Computed example of a mutant assay.
Amino acid sequence: MQFGIFTVGDVTPDPTTGRTPTEHERIKATVQIALKAEEVGLDVFATGEHHNPPFVPSSPTTTLAYIGARTSRILLSTATTLITTNDPVKIAEDYATLQHLTDGRTDLMMGRGNTGPVYPWFGKDIRQGVALAVENYALLHRLWREEVVDWEGRFRTPLQGFTATPRPLDGVPPFVWHGSIRTPEIAEQAAYYGDGYFHNNIFWPLSHTRQMVALYRQRFEHHGHGPADQAIVGLGGQVFMRKSSQDARREFRPYFDNAPVYGHGPSMEDFTAQTPLTVGSPQEVIDRYAAMRDHVGDYQRQLFLMDHAGLPLKTVLEQLDILGEEVVPVLRKEMAVGRPAHVPDAPTHASLVAQAASAAAEGSSDAAVGAAGAGGGR
């Protein structure tokens, strides 16, 4: 199972000091956080995509390519690639390039985003959000798998004899997750293609998460990709930890109370009771997240949001030390207990290359058997 972190790249004042980091500081901090994630043994670093203040990650491929040059092992992903407002041709080119630069340490998560004004900024209509996601991904899927594409749709100029370059590394496209919190059509899209489904359940009760993941699993099996428990599932999460629960809650409370995303609403106690946000000791985090598979089944990827709400960089790096040294090693063992052998691991470039080679060999074998049979019938 993969464990990692994701960032939304918010530029938020620290409520304890009143200081707001500059965009330059926040971008540089993102790189330091990714390097720390690799240092402490995490598997994945993912960044969101936003095109509006107070966020800085408007160019995920630039950031991930730079991090890729500074790291050697960690898998680099997006926490959202805006499939609705980005041109699928440009996505195909950018992420295939990133895949080559990182020697395959690249995957991405398709999403519609959570910022309505971004649609007209890129000449799109938010009322067509789901239709854009479906059509744009259908084109992207073909661009990565077909050398020459002829295509015509509703939202983009037609393509005639088009080849996206560079071609995917080793002929295998980056693995795709489809991220959605509340949209059944996106869970269906992930299931239709046999891709991964990521439910970023950080603001939702587990009853809703369970319902959406169950829908994806059912449809994955319906579309013939394998049993429902072999579907590829990822979850989001949020934690803040100190040695004692009291210290964690006391330190995090001003950040929670003033956070743009959930401040001035439910109390921290109510929010942690109703969502996966866990503020407490490392053992409390372990207990909470080890139980996630009781709700969604065995799954493949767990990402945590760690660097939001104005938390200073020093604090975030301390949190990553705790996560990597005290929490993730235990969760790895806990999640492995009783995990059925037929439940797959999260896909990597190496596993996808091996899978493609196996399928090609099986196809060649079937073709040889068929030719022999045809010859014997003459």
Rank of each mutant, 00 (worst) to 15 (best):
F3H: 06
V8L: 13
T12P: 08
D14N: 12
P15H: 08
T17D: 13
K28N: 10
A29V: 12
A29P: 13
L35K: 04
G41F: 04
V44H: 03
V44P: 05
E49Y: 01
T61Y: 00
T61E: 03
T62V: 11
A65M: 00
S72A: 07
T81F: 06
T81W: 02
L82I: 01
I83L: 02
I83P: 01
N86I: 03
E93D: 10
Y95N: 08
A96Y: 04
G104K: 05
T106N: 02
D107I: 09
M110W: 02
P117V: 11
Y119R: 12
Y119S: 07
W121H: 15
W121D: 15
F122D: 07
R127K: 13
G129N: 13
A131F: 08
N136T: 04
H141E: 14
H141L: 11
T157E: 08
P158M: 08
T163Q: 05
G171D: 02
G171M: 13
V172R: 09
P174A: 04
P174Y: 07
W177L: 07
W177V: 02
W177I: 03
I181H: 10
R182F: 05
T183G: 04
E185Y: 11
I186G: 01
E188S: 02
Q189N: 08
N201Y: 05
F203V: 09
F203P: 00
W204M: 05
L206C: 06
H208E: 10
T209F: 09
Q211R: 08
V213E: 01
R217Y: 09
Q218P: 03
H223C: 07
D229F: 02
D229I: 02
Q230G: 12
A231N: 07
G237I: 04
F240H: 12
R242S: 15
D247K: 04
E251W: 15
R253L: 14
Y255H: 14
A259Q: 15
Y262V: 15
G263K: 06
G263S: 10
P266W: 15
M268Y: 09
D287Q: 11
R288M: 07
Y289G: 03
Y299N: 06
Q300N: 12
R301A: 05
Q302P: 03
F304M: 15
M306V: 15
D307R: 08
H308S: 14
G310V: 08
L311H: 05
V316M: 05
L317N: 06
Q319Y: 04
Q319D: 06
L320V: 06
I322N: 02
I322P: 04
G324L: 00
G324C: 03
M335D: 00
S351R: 00
A354F: 14
Q355D: 10
A356S: 10
A359H: 14
A361E: 14
A367F: 10
A372M: 06
A372F: 03
G373D: 13
